[in-house]
């Protein structure tokens, strides 16, 4: 089967795509020094933001949020409640915007769609045998096309980490490309690298380039099922890959850190790193998302604290 890669993305790729040529391509990706990355992030984390910008930043964080529930015990009721919260995060403050999307398992997609109908909130579904990805490509593609048929707006797929770590780059590349194909124009594709399993920043950067070349609209750190999930350093490494990819191809790719982001302070640090690395064009929900389940209420509490000047209690914010 001939490999169709979007022509603008092909600029970086070898002419004949084989496992060996992809390995060569990934070898050309610059290496990353762990100590240096962590120092840079520590230095950016000392940036402090003035009060008016902080309020704006927190509202932006809400608009960038993929409110997530990915549990075996999920039910239509739980999804409906979470979706209501997604549409209207703070019932007492209509100025708080809706979140970007709700993120659920495939079986929950219809319920989520129903709950967000008429709002700006999108429905994202995980796919490709989330979270392990340990299934053959054909079935993963079938699963994805089924979820797309159901009407999901966004697909969060996982890469096959086992294949990536054992050097089967073609398999990983081909799988992303095929999944991208069935997403078509309807669904946005986010590719989860599960950075906590990749072992080094060098590998994270290579996996990022591979995913972007194969057609990812977004690259995403984690499933949330593996520790460590999103961290600032790993996000910086992926943002640098996005920047290099843009400079080489002109194609803009989005970023989604997911898992482990729980406080407003964390969220603002991610936005600082984003702003300093990629600049203002990425500072929108179209190009940056937070995957989180408990972050929202902390951000809401901070928004209200800025508004009222009183520290807040969790008792006054809905838990859905």
């Amino acid at each position: 089967m001939a490999l169709a890669v979007a022509p603008d993305r092909a600029a970086l790729l070898p002419e004949r795509i084989t496992n060996a040529s992809l390995a060569g391509f990934l070898r050309s990706v610059p290496s990353t020094d762990e100590v240096g990355v962590e120092e840079r992030v520590a230095s950016l984390s000392t940036r402090s933001i003035k009060k008016d910008s902080k309020s704006e930043a927190l509202r932006l964080a809400v608009r960038m949020m993929d409110l997530t529930t990915l549990e075996g015990k999920d039910t239509p009721g739980k999804v409906a409640q979470m979706s209501a919260k997604a549409v209207r995060p703070d019932p007492t403050d209509p100025s708080v915007p809706s979140v970007a999307a709700v993120c659920v398992y495939p079986a929950m997609v219809p319920y989520a769609l129903e709950a967000v109908a008429g709002s700006s909130v999108k429905v994202a579904s995980v796919a490709t045998y989330f979270p392990s990805g340990q299934l053959d490509t054909k079935l993963k593609v079938t699963e994805t096309s089924r979820v797309v048929e159901m009407g999901a707006h966004e697909i969060d797929m996982v890469i096959d980490r086992g294949a990536f770590l054992s050097g089967e780059y073609f398999r990983v590349f081909d799988e992303i490309r095929r999944v991208r194909e069935v997403c078509g124009d309807q669904a946005h594709l986010k590719v989860i690298l599960e950075t906590g399993e990749l072992g080094s920043y060098d590998q994270v950067r290579r996996a990022s380039m591979l995913a972007m070349a194969a057609g990812a609209d977004f690259i995403k750190t984690s499933t949330g099922k593996v520790q460590p999930a999103a961290t600032l350093p790993v996000t910086l490494v992926m943002l640098e890959a996005i920047r290099d990819f843009y400079l080489a191809t002109g194609v803009q790719v989005g970023m989604k850190p997911a898992g482990g982001i729980r406080t407003s302070k964390d969220a603002i640090r991610y936005l600082v790193v984003l702003n300093e690395t990629l600049g203002s064009a990425w500072m929108t929900p179209d190009w940056f998302r937070f995957g989180a389940s408990t972050l929202l209420n902390d951000v809401l509490m901070q928004i209200r604290w800025l508004k009222t000047g009183r520290y807040q209690s969790a008792d006054y914010f809905t838990k859905d």
């Binding site: 002109g250 600049g279 203002s280 064009a281 929108t284």
Partner: peptide, 19 residues
């Protein structure tokens, strides 16, 4: 190679002053 990162002029994102 001389491509630059795009920018959104409308976005106000200011740190300073935080004295």
């Amino acid at each position: 190679m001389s491509r630059n990162l795009p920018a959104t002029p409308a976005l106000e994102w200011s740190y300073a002053p935080s004295r």
